[in-house]
Design a protein around this nucleic acid. Structure first.
Lengths: 241, 241
DNA sequence: ACCTGAACACCGTTCAAGT
DNA sequence: ACCTGAACACCGTTCAAGT
């Protein structure tokens, strides 16, 4: 890869789809980094590997990108371009919001190493803003107050990002919940009766139902808890008893 | 520190509070690592630095600890020993749960670098189990169904861990929400009217009210959304319109 | 058999020397 | 003036050589 036979024709013609030593640019760097992230996960996206993929040294990238963290933020937002915000399939705002959050969740979990990146970088790129705008629109359609909507969008995005981080971390390991199962197995009924009683339920996987349930929880909770009353009445607490 | 004057007395007497070259052990390693984490944050807790603090080489630690990730998990659980689960100050389960989650949140945010550690490691240590048990107890007191409680405890802990990670990441930077403020300032009203309209609200800081609000949202939502009905009726959706 | 110095294969970032 | 090879100051992990 690094040694080139001098008798070979210079690689001018494009191998299909591949860039042909295109001039270095911020965008080309971000694109290469995202390719590496998709292929090899977070550690495939090191500054040195990105530089190597572009046939240059690591120092060169600093002419186009502040530092590694900034590159991560750029890669994240580029990846978020795949999130679908304009869905009109569902008639109600809840359905549309669920579809949007599922799209966000899917993008984060499908690309190995993307979710932790979203957990570490502030969502300030153009695609993050597009997602923000879409959710606020749906919250407005739901008749939510502005203050509640502002805090709510943060809450919802943070939660989905967090669960995506957890799920994508588990995707690496062969038996994801083995450590938890072991820990729960060792628990004594005397010291941890509740954990014992909930053992199987705590281990029940994270299928789509669970994601949908969690989102419903957030939406129901947000609708019921206006942000101006820090300690709302506990009217509902006893209801389900 | 590494060069020692051969004429000085060997460091046998304890400098107050300090360990005196106590024999290496898993526990001593974890304690030293937590000390370093508290002092210098996540990067202060590198395997090499922990080894150096114990006057040994990095290879030695592998006799006591699986690898760096396992050490992180041990350090996390040791730090979680400070979380107060037995509070009886509040008469109601909500108040006690709020106090417990605040304690967890405080422990995670007070120690620099601890929160991301909690985000990466599965909560399977003895202190994590103690917290799990306490929350399940309170959920039971609230009359929650078991399946709902099992999913709910996961939801609540994950959210609090996530927000602690975000807050503690911001604690490092001098002007935490400057990037967000800038991004929101550049947004055009034409393309992002909702973001524009919520601008100041989106930037309103993360004080204790906001944390309390978020927890109330989760609790209200969980109480209202039994886990057996993946798509509960939207009875409440229009109420606040 | 146990412990560990030294080596291995990496990092992100800087900067002086080249064009 | 711009670009970048080489160096700097680190990583986590392994393993052969010592006790």
């Amino acid at each position: 890869m690094s040694t080139r036979n001098p008798f070979e024709a210079p690689p001018v013609r494009s191998r299909r789809g591949g860039r042909v030593k295109e001039p270095l640019s911020r965008d080309a760097i971000v694109a290469a980094a995202l390719d590496l992230l998709k292929r090899d996960g977070l550690e495939g996206m090191s500054l040195r590997k990105v530089a190597a993929a572009l046939d240059t040294g690591p120092a060169t990238l600093y002419a186009y990108v502040e530092d590694h963290k900034a590159l991560q933020a750029l890669v994240l937002d580029r990846a978020l371009s795949e999130v679908v915000t304009g869905g009109r399939a569902q008639p109600d705002w809840r359905g549309r919001l669920m579809a949007l959050l599922e799209s966000y969740f899917t993008v984060l979990t499908r690309t190995r190493g993307l979710a932790p990146l979203a957990m570490n970088a502030a969502p300030v790129g153009p695609n993050a803003l597009r997602i923000l705008e879409a959710i606020l629109e749906l919250f407005d359609e739901a008749g939510m107050e502005r203050a509640t909507a502002a805090w709510g969008v943060d809450l919802v995005l943070l939660y989905v990002t967090a669960i995506a981080t957890e799920v994508s971390a588990r995707q690496g390991t062969p038996y994801p919940l083995a450590p938890m199962a072991q820990a729960l197995g060792r628990v004594s009924a005397a010291s941890h009766p509740m954990v014992q009683a909930h053992r199987e339920l705590l281990l029940s996987g994270d299928g789509p139902d669970r994601f949908a349930w969690a989102v419903e929880v957030l939406l129901n909770g947000i609708l019921e808890t206006p942000s101006d009353s820090p300690r709302p009445a506990q009217k509902k607490a006893a209801r389900r008893r």
